[in-house]
Simulated scan of single mutants.
Amino acid sequence: MIKIWNRTFEDMSNWAIEKVDIAESDYILDVGCGGGQTVYNLAKKAKKGQVSGIDISSEAVKSSIEKNKREIENGKVKIYEADVANLPFTSEYFDEITAIQTHIYWDDLKKGLSEIYRVLKIHGQLLIVCEKDKINYHMKSYKENDEMKQLLFEIGFKKITINESGNWIVFICDKD
């Protein structure tokens, strides 16, 4: 199933990532890395940086490690079993953070976003990417774009840009 998700969400992930500038030296975190396809694609862009992935599922972590074995051996990619609500990184560590089709499953959305904000560098960006119908189905709160924007502002993000394409949505959140 995890490998199927790699293929299913790759186009949506790439569409969203193209909306931001990723520097070759960026340190990037993919929250809910699943099978590791987004980590793999990000590592190609951040050639001189580092890409980390976290997932709460040990099976997803194994799959992501398998997908990124070569880059892990080179020290360019790191994969962790971790919960977004308790990230194992120092404050202001990452330039970019992605959350692809994952925030809808977090136990505590506000806590997860607060942890992301903590580990994101000043002038860094968070991309929350999801299918709109999945948001409507899985989320009890924050289904509407304005509700989600308000929560992101409360967390501390200063600028939030929303892009939509068909059933896809990305929130690009700037920390200034």
Rank of each mutant, 00 (worst) to 15 (best):
I2K: 07
I2D: 01
I2M: 05
I2Q: 06
I4T: 12
I4Q: 13
T8A: 15
E10A: 12
E10Q: 12
M12F: 05
M12A: 13
S13R: 01
N14Q: 14
W15R: 08
A16C: 09
I17T: 09
I17F: 04
I17N: 06
I17R: 02
K19E: 14
K19A: 10
D21P: 00
D21L: 12
I22W: 04
E24L: 04
S25A: 11
D26P: 01
V31R: 07
G35K: 01
Q37F: 04
T38L: 02
Y40I: 00
Y40Q: 07
L42I: 07
A43H: 01
A43F: 01
A43N: 06
K47N: 05
K48Y: 11
G49M: 10
G49W: 06
G49N: 05
D55Q: 09
D55R: 05
D55E: 11
I56D: 02
A60G: 07
I65P: 01
K69H: 07
E71N: 15
I72C: 00
I72V: 11
I72A: 01
E73M: 00
N74D: 09
N74I: 00
K76N: 04
V77R: 00
K78E: 01
K78L: 02
Y80E: 01
E81K: 15
D83T: 09
V84D: 01
V84S: 12
N86T: 10
L87A: 09
L87Q: 08
L87T: 08
P88D: 04
E92W: 00
Y93N: 13
Y93E: 15
I97F: 08
T98G: 01
I100N: 14
Q101H: 11
Y105N: 13
D108Q: 05
L109E: 13
L109C: 06
K110I: 13
K111H: 06
L113M: 15
E115T: 10
R118E: 10
R118P: 11
V119S: 05
V119C: 09
I122T: 14
L126R: 06
L127Q: 11
L127C: 07
V129S: 07
K132A: 02
K134I: 11
K134G: 04
I135P: 01
Y137T: 14
H138A: 10
M139V: 03
M139F: 07
M139A: 06
K140S: 13
S141G: 06
Y142I: 08
E144C: 04
N145Y: 03
D146F: 12
E147T: 03
K149N: 11
L151T: 09
F153W: 13
E154Y: 08
E154Q: 13
F157Y: 14
K158H: 08
K159A: 06
I160L: 10
I162G: 03
E164I: 07
S165R: 12
G166D: 12
W168V: 04
F171V: 04
I172T: 13
K175L: 05
